[in-house]
């Protein structure tokens, strides 16, 4: 059996008296698509933040392709192959779309802090433009991010997460705030991701979460309560109880 892309062993995160994530254990196989769903406050984003290093787990162990990253800093985890987006777009509003993507591309490269201006033939710049094309922002390369619509900001978020060629891509509610017309485009983009990229997705929209995933993890009150294939998840009595209440 190959080494899992990501292994969580009894990961917990506590904020004072609040146990946000409780004893979460699961493996994500290389190339797997995993959706993490659950009601608000279930601990999904906290689990993401713990995996990405925004705050370390209170206990437990996190491994990336067999490497213990439990205490690694966020930038170290990114360089090791984790890319992520945020529930609320975190972008560089004062910079242009091209500059946002350029900074994202340079983040995992050597000489990332060069004090020499990049020439027009800089490969990082070419990659930034290719990414803009991929997330359908090519016509807006020179536009300041401040002036982008919500949907365009979400697209840029994904472009920036892809910029470092991550081995594990973690998307936190990528469809949040997208119009019904924009959602199929997102799903199509997720489906075009190569299997060399492992995908972990938090998503409330089941029309995106289920078709985009191979396996679904359901969380409630910080714990994993169900893990099942997408075609079985809607019929699971525990999931029905969580989403529809115990009377159903």
């Amino acid at each position: 059996m190959s080494t899992p892309a990501l292994r969580l062993s009894s990961v917990s995160r506590r904020f004072g008296a609040l146990q946000a994530v409780r004893d979460v254990t699961f493996d994500v196989a290389p190339g797997e698509r995993r959706a993490v769903i659950g009601p608000n406050g279930a601990g999904k984003t906290t689990l993401f933040n713990t995996i990405c290093g925004d705050f370390p787990p209170s206990s437990g162990r996190i491994e990336l392709f067999g490497l213990d990253i439990t205490r690694a800093r966020p930038h170290q985890r990114t360089r090791l192959g984790i890319g992520r987006t945020y529930q609320t777009s975190l972008l560089f509003n004062g910079l242009t779309v091209e500059q946002n993507l350029f900074v994202a591309v340079r983040g995992v490269q050597p000489h990332r802090w060069s004090v020499l201006r990049s020439g027009r033939d800089d490969p990082a710049l070419a990659k930034a433009r290719a990414l803009a094309e991929r997330v359908q922002l090519a016509p807006l390369l020179s536009e300041r991010v401040l002036n982008l619509s919500h949907g365009q900001r979400r697209q840029l978020e994904i472009g920036m997460a892809l910029a470092g060629d991550p081995k594990v891509l973690m998307l936190d509610e990528p469809a949040a705030g997208l119009s019904a017309g924009e959602r199929p485009g997102l799903l199509a983009m997720l489906r075009t991701l190569p299997r060399s990229v492992t995908l972990i997705l938090i998503e409330h929209d089941m029309d995106i979460a289920l078709p985009a995933s191979d396996i679904v993890t359901v969380m409630k009150d910080g714990e994993v309560v169900v893990e099942a294939a997408p075609d079985r998840i809607e019929d699971d009595p525990t999931v029905q109880a969580i989403y529809l209440g115990t009377g159903h």
């Binding site: 966020p74 509003n93 900074v103 983040g107």
Partner: peptide, 10 residues
């Protein structure tokens, strides 16, 4: 603009 994002980019 966003220090957290900068860290997440490496």
């Amino acid at each position: 603009d966003n220090a957290r994002r900068v860290a997440a980019l490496g």
